[in-house]
């Protein structure tokens, strides 16, 4: 098997100094594929997403995270980003006074060598393409990062950044939550625009709805801090129709197991 993949190996983790949330996650997203990660509230999906990006409010107890065979566990968030990882945040923060254009130029240049900064024309061309792919008005790039953005605009901004930064692997943390169908399609189109042989994505969602527009190569189910089931895209349909209980029963997990993990 090729090394080109995002891999999570037996990952155990907790809130720094607090409760254990991930209890042995195993997951592989090969480059070129889009996988969905589903699961009830409190199963650890968002924790996994933030942990992969290097959020310092979590602590890894055991296991590993690897990009193309290289462990990134010891890397700072910015080093992971430069290694090719991207997290589309569920709740992106506001950064007053920092325009999207300025920020993205700095972020791109952080990936390049000194003296090899991205050219102004090249940068704006790239930015314009991304804005267009998201069916957005060009004036958006001069707005300050998420200042006064609606929930939908924030999600769009996360995908915009993905398109400009062109990561090797992206984790999308509930990029569909709170979106109406039109906005959902726009976001999905953006993600689909990024798809290709050198791009892998893990799409975290509660709803099968998003997966109508971003069709996954595989679906994983998380419960009580572990991936308990993986299957083809049809698995998402089953979950939508039947809920999670049947899988949990199959693996001998009670619903309260999640509730405890969530508390």
């Amino acid at each position: 098997m090729s090394d080109n993949r995002l891999e999570i190996r037996n990952l155990h983790a907790r809130i720094a100094g607090g409760e254990t949330i991930l209890k042995g996650v195993d997951l592989i997203v090969p480059s070129g594929e889009v996988h969905a990660l589903m699961g009830p509230n409190g199963s650890g999906k968002s924790t996994l997403a933030k942990l992969m990006a290097g959020d310092p409010s979590y602590e890894v107890l055991d296991g590993d995270i690897l990009i193309d065979g290289e462990s990134v566990l010891e890397l700072e968030p910015d080093e992971r980003a430069r290694a090719g990882l991207y997290l589309a945040f569920q709740y992106p923060v506001e950064v007053p006074g920092v325009s999207i254009a300025n920020f993205l130029r700095l972020a791109l240049n952080a990936r390049r060598e000194e003296g090899d900064e991205v050219g102004v024309m090249e940068f704006y061309a790239k930015l314009q393409r991304a804005v267009k792919a998201l069916d957005w008005d060009e004036s958006i790039i001069e707005r300050n990062l998420h200042e006064g953005f609606s929930g939908g605009e924030k999600k769009r901004s996360e995908v915009l950044q993905l398109l400009v930064l062109e990561p090797r692997y992206a984790i999308l943390d509930e990029s569909d939550s709170g979106l109406d169908v039109d906005a959902l399609k726009v976001v999905a189109n953006g993600v689909n625009a990024a798809r290709g042989p050198n791009f892998g994505a893990l799409v975290i969602t509660h709803y099968q709805r998003l997966l109508n527009y971003i069709v996954p190569d595989m679906v994983h189910v998380m419960s009580s801090g572990r991936v308990i089931e993986s299957g083809p895209k049809e698995l998402a349909m089953d979950l939508d129709a039947k809920g999670y209980d049947w899988i949990r029963e199959k693996h001998g997990i009670t619903a309260s197991g999640d509730a405890v993990a969530h508390a």
């Binding site: 310092p56 945040f89 992106p92 923060v93 950064v95 700095l106």
Partner: peptide, 15 residues
């Protein structure tokens, strides 16, 4: 704000 710092770092900017 730590969240802002983490966010910006997650885009590749050093701390």
């Amino acid at each position: 704000n730590d969240e802002q710092i983490f966010y910006l770092m997650s885009r590749g900017l050093p701390e």
